[in-house]
Write a protein that binds this DNA or RNA. Structure first.
Lengths: 191, 191
DNA sequence: GTCTATAATGCGATAGAC
DNA sequence: GTCTATCGCATTATAGAC
């Protein structure tokens, strides 16, 4: 299966604006702290209009996060196509850095928000993708310490993304620095 | 002023149980996703009993987080007493690692939860402490890249704490590894 | 300190017109 | 696709008895 995981949604222009508004609010107030009324106001419509796009709030959250996870799945797929764990890890790392710099807030919400995390635990595919990504970065024979390093790295990426102190850094600079940081931290000469 | 910042609360046994229950739920569902009813049920009392301890939900959240911030303030204070930024950074780092391994979930909530973050932004003292800690770790003449590293490090600490994959690691092992990791990453020491 | 009871508000979600 | 209007329910918070 070489095709990208799935593309269920036509992603109409209206839906895109809905996703963007919801994500902005999710990042600032959290998913639980964001009501459908707030989202509707941000878009400039009523709650009922939002419900035309998604039957429940949970489905809206999934709709916001899903495109991100599709891209993560694509990264994992391309990394698996490489040969040797080092080349795989390098591909996973650079793909991941490219992605999160591109979507910034989406990564923060998907990784840290409790509601988003719980929803991902329910959908088995999404859990599998995250597990494979960790496996690619950790390498074939990872022990507890190595797993701590990977968990540390993936969580650390949200720091520069969420912090307003470093939010002004241009995409290119941030991408270059995070990639270098990841190489040193995860791919550097080890034992 | 060498005394610890403040100790307003007598911290009665009842309050301690309230804090522990609230923190457990905050970590799992987020602050917004945790109702006072859930907290009351967890403790085994009614909502009204909770309201006897705190007038509002926000005050309860502050009550849970405040002891943590007092300890961070203490770390900053002791680090400032050292001479030379390297000794200061070392003191701040080791103090911080000790603290977060001790309180684990509290660090995750205080750093990542939107409600907790917003509440800290309102109380100026708490913002100052966090800023000073970052300054201690970043060093005297920090540029954007160095600030990214510090933001990365502080955010990265939540990874091993929140991840169930690495949650079973004993305190001593986790503390030793995070301290070593921090020294390598921020202080540039070889193992 | 804890309880019952309740007020006031906002929430997610639905029905049906346009 | 968007609207108005509404239902049922959970929420924060308060009042007052024990």
């Amino acid at each position: 299966m070489t095709t990208a995981a799935r593309e269920e949604r036509p992603a109409s222009a209206g839906r895109e604006r809905l996703h963007a508004a919801a994500l902005r609010l999710f990042a600032e107030h959290g998913v639980s702290g964001t009501s459908l009324q707030m989202i509707a106001d941000e878009v400039g419509v009523t709650k009922a209009a939002v419900y035309h796009h998604y039957k429940t709030k949970d489905e809206l959250v999934v709709g916001v996060i899903d495109p991100f996870l599709d891209r993560v799945a694509g990264i994992v797929e391309r990394a698996h196509a490489r040969r040797g764990w080092r080349a795989q890890a390098e591909a996973a790392l650079s793909g991941l850095v490219d992605l999160i710099v591109d979507v910034r807030r989406l990564y923060v919400v998907a990784v840290t928000d409790p509601v988003a995390v719980h929803l991902q635990e329910q959908h088995p595919r999404l859990r599998v993708v995250a597990g494979e990504l960790r496996g690619l970065l950790a390498g074939p024979d990872a022990d507890d310490e190595r797993r701590i390093d990977v968990a540390f790295f993936l969580a650390g990426l949200v720091g520069p993304l969420g912090d307003p102190q470093t939010f002004h850094v241009p995409d290119e600079d941030l991408r270059a620095h995070l990639l270098d940081l990841g190489r040193r931290f995860l791919l550097g000469r080890r034992r």
